[in-house]
Amino acid sequence: MLEAKIKSEILKEVVEAASLLIDEGKFSISQDEISLKAVDPAHIALIELGFSATAFDVFNASPMELGVNLDKLKKVIRLASPQDIMTLKLDEEANRLNISFANLSHRMALLDSSTMREPKTPNVALSTKTTLNGSDLAQGIRAASTISDYIILTATPEALELSCKGDTDAINVQLSKDSLAEHQCQEKVRSLFSLEYLSSLMKIIKPTDAVCLSLGNDLPVKIDFDIAEGKGKVSYLLAPRIGPD
C-alpha cells in the first residue's frame, strides 16, 4: 500500500538526484523513509539517497520496492508548478503508480524491481573531512571546466584546493581553513576527478547548501549534502582518475 501527498518541488529535487546516474531506479519504501542506491553503468559514481516520510504532507505506506522509470517521472513532474501538491497512489493490481496534481492524472507503469540489483557501497577509508558552501564548490568546478575535463582536489592541514592544468592555462582555487565551516586534515592528500561527473552533480547542489567533502590519496571522493528542505540526504561517491595528469 502506498498513498502519499508531496509538494512537487520537493519530489522534483529527489527525482533529479536519483536520475543523476541512472534512467531506471528502485526506490525502497519503509514506513518512515524512502531510499535509493544506484551506480552508473560505467561504475564511476554511486549515489545513495534517503528522505524522510516527514517530507510528505501525507504518507501511508507498507514496506515495498518500486521500480520506476525516472526519466518518465521527471517529465511528469516538470508539468507541475512548484507549489502543486502531487498525489501518489499505488495500484498494486495493475502494477502502476497513479500520479495526480491540479487537473492532470498520469497512470505510470512500474518496472519489475526484482531484476534491479542494488550495488554494494565500496568501503573506502577517507582521511579528511571538509564542509564548504555549495557556491564555493560550484565556482571551483565551473572555473576548472573552462580549461580542462578534470579537476585535482587537494586537502592540506591549512586549506582545500581545487586546481587543474590545461594545455596552456592553469587554475587554482584556494579555500583556507578559516574560510571553511569545517576542515579536518592531518596530512596532505590529493586525487583527480572527472569534471563531467562533478558538473552534473552541481545541478542538484544549491549555492547555500552545506557540502561535506571527504578525500584520500588516489581514492574516491565522498560528497554529502541535504536535499528536500533538510528532510533528505544524498551521499555521492566518485571514483578518481589515476595516472598522469
Binding site: 560505467a42 550495488p119 565500496p122 573506502v124 581514492l219 574516491p220 571514483a239 578518481p240
Partner: peptide, 12 residues
Amino acid sequence: GKRLGQADLFEF
C-alpha cells in the same frame, strides 16, 4: 580520450 585513467569505483 577524456575518460582515460578513470578508475572503476568497485576497484576500491
